[in-house]
Amino acid sequence: MSLDLHFILFLLLRMAIAAAFVVTASVITERSGPVIGALVATLPISAGPSYVFLALDHDAAFIAQGALSSLPVNAATIVLGLTYVVLAQRNNLLVSAGSAVAVWIVLASIIRLFDWTLAAGLVVNLVAFGICIPLLARYRHVKMPLVTRRWYDIPFRASLVATLVAIVVSTSGWVGPRVSGVIALYPIVFTSMMVILHPRIGGPPTAAVLANSAWGLLGFGMAIAVLHLGAANFGSAIGLSMGLATCIAWNLTLWWNGRRKRLAAAAS
């Protein structure tokens, strides 16, 4: 087998694996309502596979440096979420999602111009989330209507994440860790939910999923910081495992805390 054919087949396998993660998580999101859906959506189901595949091709220093660029991009994602949530209350998909993605691209383009430190990335996240979480709170409580799936849903989501993985993996060698870290954090799951759910159930219910994701996304930012520290000190495999464990533990804590509050309210 030629080297080029081997690369193409391996790339296709990576794309298929990543797509399967995102499609599964998206289906769970639709069936679980905005709260559970938001917790699933903020797991590393898109960025995770991208980073795993980067770790297969590059050393731990590359992964640690990429995570430093990914950390401020997480702050850009919560701004994307706020932009969409506010606009989706009264506007159509094109205006709401288009404006949100445009905001993310502008912020990500600015972020990639700088060499980020861990402290600077954490500060940017704290400021962004400190502003956005209170603003998103009023949009969280909307009943999720029944979603009727269409034939193109799964292929559409699969193609989005597969394309992202292909871009990250195939360009990482020449764009370097900084740009790879930015691209890997593109919010594929949020974008697919906007595009698919908004035309069917309307802006406010779709926005509720993103609004409920704010706290989960904050934990995702912490997981990126843990990934950087873990990869820099213990290697890529341990760093990735530590980042994933942080994300899961954070989201499980959010779920348990929400469940405890609901039980207390029901008992009172």
Score class of each variant (00 low, 15 high):
residue 172 S to P: 04
residue 173 G to I: 11
residue 173 G to H: 13
residue 173 G to K: 08
residue 174 W to I: 09
residue 174 W to E: 01
residue 174 W to T: 03
residue 174 W to R: 00
residue 174 W to S: 03
residue 174 W to M: 01
residue 175 V to P: 05
residue 175 V to W: 11
residue 175 V to N: 14
residue 175 V to D: 09
residue 176 G to Q: 07
residue 177 P to V: 09
residue 177 P to E: 11
residue 178 R to H: 12
residue 178 R to M: 09
residue 178 R to I: 12
residue 178 R to G: 06
residue 178 R to Q: 14
residue 180 S to D: 01
residue 180 S to V: 00
residue 180 S to I: 00
residue 181 G to S: 09
residue 182 V to Y: 00
residue 182 V to T: 12
residue 183 I to L: 15
residue 184 A to Y: 03
residue 184 A to L: 04
residue 185 L to Q: 11
residue 185 L to A: 12
residue 186 Y to C: 11
residue 186 Y to L: 15
residue 186 Y to P: 01
residue 187 P to K: 13
residue 187 P to R: 12
residue 189 V to I: 15
residue 189 V to W: 12
residue 189 V to A: 15
residue 190 F to L: 14
residue 190 F to G: 06
residue 191 T to W: 10
residue 191 T to P: 01
residue 191 T to D: 06
residue 191 T to C: 13
residue 192 S to L: 03
residue 192 S to G: 03
residue 193 M to H: 13
residue 193 M to E: 08
residue 193 M to I: 11
residue 193 M to W: 06
residue 194 M to I: 06
residue 194 M to C: 13
residue 195 V to Y: 04
residue 195 V to L: 14
residue 195 V to A: 08
residue 196 I to K: 01
residue 196 I to A: 04
residue 196 I to C: 02
residue 197 L to S: 04
residue 197 L to K: 00
residue 197 L to D: 07
residue 198 H to M: 13
residue 199 P to G: 06
residue 199 P to D: 10
residue 199 P to W: 10
residue 199 P to V: 07
residue 200 R to M: 10
residue 200 R to V: 10
residue 201 I to N: 05
residue 201 I to C: 02
residue 202 G to C: 09
residue 202 G to N: 07
residue 202 G to D: 11
residue 202 G to Q: 09
residue 202 G to I: 06
residue 203 G to L: 09
residue 203 G to R: 10
residue 203 G to D: 11
residue 203 G to S: 08
residue 204 P to R: 05
residue 204 P to L: 03
residue 205 P to C: 09
residue 205 P to N: 06
residue 205 P to G: 08
residue 206 T to I: 10
residue 206 T to G: 08
residue 207 A to Y: 10
residue 207 A to N: 06
residue 207 A to M: 04
residue 209 V to T: 14
residue 209 V to S: 11
residue 210 L to A: 14
residue 210 L to I: 13
residue 210 L to M: 15
residue 211 A to V: 05
residue 211 A to W: 11
residue 213 S to P: 00
residue 213 S to R: 02
residue 214 A to D: 00
residue 214 A to R: 08
residue 214 A to G: 12
residue 214 A to I: 02
residue 215 W to N: 12
residue 215 W to K: 14
residue 215 W to M: 13
residue 216 G to N: 10
residue 216 G to P: 05
residue 216 G to R: 13
residue 217 L to H: 08
residue 218 L to N: 13
residue 218 L to T: 12
residue 219 G to N: 03
residue 219 G to T: 02
residue 219 G to V: 02
residue 220 F to S: 14
residue 220 F to V: 06
residue 220 F to L: 15
